[in-house]
């Protein structure tokens, strides 16, 4: 299991201006099966109240990325991010994460892999508070290849927490999106006990990050108005991203949405 104090590349900053951060790589299984995907967790433990960035960083920052270093024939799936939060300043609104951040990814071993294999992940992130500091953590973990998977029970709490923080599918929700002159109207039905909602677009240049997203209650749900990005080249064809919904108790849940945008015929 690779655990490392991340190298903070603070060439121009004193240590007091850099956050404490540790990054680790944990496979869910000790023993994995050739050709069959398994999940790994990348945990960033970041001193509060610093933040790192989501896949769409918003008005500033840079996405947290992982460069995989895998044996030949192995493949890594997309990074799965927790439901993001907003970090606002006069410079705009950024999308990111703070505290314990666990990213998941599926790794598929080569179908002919044998013995023991090393999974490498170089984690690159930018941590910001008032200042911004880049960090890099080259991590490595070993897995054994075997006829059946053997889950690492000690890692279960970590993976449970990580999966709870991921957006869930939009199953059970009725959703639709419509283009307006300078905005998109997102209609969501099927949610009870909803106090606040915010849509995070996966892609930059689709909606304005800093604009408020006015919420209008309608029968059986709500409409969220998303101002289009001033940097959009053309009207978007789809709204893809995470709808974060906060209930009256202040608990936030995320739903991964991918909606075709209807236009005026």
């Amino acid at each position: 299991m690779g655990v490392l104090e991340a190298a903070i590349l603070a060439t121009v900053l004193s240590a007091s201006q850099a956050p404490k951060v540790s990054v680790s790589l944990t496979p869910e299984a000790r023993s994995v099966v050739p050709g069959q995907p398994f999940t790994v967790a990348i945990r960033i433990d970041l001193e509060r109240p610093w933040h790192v960035y989501w896949r769409n960083p918003g008005d500033s920052g840079v996405p947290t990325i992982v460069e995989w270093r895998l044996p030949k024939g192995w493949k890594a799936g997309p990074l799965q991010f927790p439901v993001p939060k907003r970090f606002g300043s006069e410079g705009g609104t950024a999308y990111g994460h703070d505290g314990e951040i666990v990213l998941l990814a599926q790794i598929t071993p080569d179908a002919k892999a044998t013995g023991t294999a090393k999974v490498g992940a170089n984690v690159l992130f930018l941590a910001c508070l008032e200042a911004c500091v880049p960090g890099e953590a080259p991590l490595e973990a070993s897995v054994r290849l075997g006829p059946s998977p053997l889950v690492d029970q000690t890692a279960k709490p970590l993976f449970d927490r990580a999966r709870k923080a991921l957006p869930s599918t939009a199953r059970g929700l009725s959703t639709a999106a419509l283009a307006e002159s300078d905005a998109y109207a997102m209609r969501v039905g099927g949610l009870s006990d909803m106090k606040e909602a915010y849509f995070y677009s996966d892609e930059p240049n689709v909606i304005s990050n800093a604009a408020s997203q006015p919420l209008e209650a309608i029968d059986g749900g709500f409409t969220l108005r998303l101002a289009r990005s001033e940097y959009a080249k053309k009207p978007a064809a789809r709204l893809t991203g995470v709808l974060a919904v906060t209930d009256a108790a202040g608990k936030t849940r995320g739903y991964q949405l991918d909606l075709a945008i209807a236009r005026r015929p």
Binding site: D182, A185, R187, T223, A262
Partner: peptide
């Protein structure tokens, strides 16, 4: 298309993409 019309109301559809 019909579903969307009833969901979002006709008013929003009147605005074209002229901007």
């Amino acid at each position: 298309k019909k579903t969307l019309l009833s969901m979002l109301g006709l008013a929003t559809l009147g605005i074209a993409l002229s901007a």
